[in-house]
């Protein structure tokens, strides 16, 4: 790097660095720090009242009905995370493995699998909402037309299927992302290693579990962490498909909806509470940060440096 002799170099660097720093400081760092501060105050509408210590945290964690709402939403998030781990990341790994072979048409398949990823979640959510319609949705129409009419049901209207219907829609939307991240990981495996494996074993299973999987560990670390953060921030898709209340009967309620509802209120429950909302935000934030750090560190430990 060149050593600068200009007299005004400090000024020049300042001109370059300060505006972008100001944006990040004002619209990211400051709001996040404030979110922590907000949680310790009592709020009435948009007005901040007294400092009340940990009371907001106590309320959302231990006082009914908040306690069961928090637990219910959290439990649904956990289901969503593990289900997507299989349907999105697991399937993504298999698809990546298939694409890696570069069979005829691989280029086309690669473009197709990523197509839903570029769509807005809002479009995906409405599209699937129409597909799941009990009378006129293509899901039930298809079932009826192949003689499985008894399987047709109000997918989004009953507690037993609503959350899973959302999970399927989400998996369809995003499966292309882990697929292509894994694929990039596989393409970086050096040819010599693969040749050496070919000498040792004929078994596809051994190859996948002992060679490919460990060598794409860096990709796995990233997609697992991103899925975790995404699953616990889930908002748009349930908001459109199930509504702000996580209907029916809270079966699709997740922390994102619950937080938004608590902070900004909704049509039916009305009351907005910035204090409780901030406490929830802080708890979710700490939870995500802590677990994401653990996931990243533990998965990093098994990554192999080539």
């Amino acid at each position: 790097m060149p050593k600068l002799r200009m007299t005004g170099r400090g000024l020049w660097i300042t001109v370059l660095v300060v505006p972008p720093l100001a944006f990040v400081a004002l619209f990211i760092v400051y709001p996040i720090l404030s979110a922590f501060a907000y949680a310790f105050f009592d709020w009435q509408g948009l007005r901040r009242l007294d400092f009340i210590g940990l009371e907001n945290f106590h309320t959302v964690l231990f006082v009914e009905p908040y306690r069961s709402w928090t637990l219910n939403a959290f439990r649904n998030n956990v289901i969503v995370f593990f289900a997507l781990m299989v349907l999105q990341n697991g399937l993504g790994f298999i698809l990546a493995y298939a694409l890696w072979r570069e069979l005829p048409g691989a280029r086309f398949h690669r473009v197709a699998v990523f197509l839903p990823v570029v769509l807005s979640t809002i479009i995906v959510a409405y599209l699937f909402k129409l597909f799941y319609h009990p009378l006129f949705g293509v899901v039930n129409i298809s079932l009826r037309s192949i003689g499985l009419g008894w399987l047709a049901q109000p997918w989004l209207g009953q507690s037993s299927t609503a959350l899973w219907s959302l999970i399927i829609a989400q998996a369809w939307h995003m499966v292309g992302f882990p697929t292509l991240v894994f694929l990039a990981g596989m393409q970086r495996i050096p040819g010599e290693i693969l040749d050496a494996v070919r000498m040792e074993t004929e078994s596809e299973w051994v190859k996948i579990t002992k060679i490919v999987w460990p060598l794409v560990a860096p990709s796995a670390t990233i997609v697992f962490t991103l899925l975790f953060v995404g699953a616990f921030n889930w908002f748009e898709l349930p908001y459109i498909m199930a509504g702000l209340d996580g209907s029916p009967f809270g079966s699709t309620d997740v922390l994102g909806l619950y937080f938004y509802r608590t902070a900004f209120g909704n049509v039916s429950a009305g009351q907005q509470d910035f204090g409780l909302g901030s406490a929830l935000a802080v708890l979710i934030f700490i939870f995500i940060a802590a677990i994401a750090t653990v996931i990243t560190l533990r998965l990093r430990a098994r990554e192999i440096q080539l």
Binding site: P20, V29, P31, G256, A263
Partner: peptide, 23 residues
């Protein structure tokens, strides 16, 4: 400064929506 920018990389800004709204 680079660290400062990188810190913003992973933070879920949705959770800071209340202060952002006030801002």
């Amino acid at each position: 400064i680079l660290m400062f920018f990188l810190a913003g990389l992973t933070l879920p800004l949705k959770l800071a929506i209340i202060p952002l709204f006030m801002l």
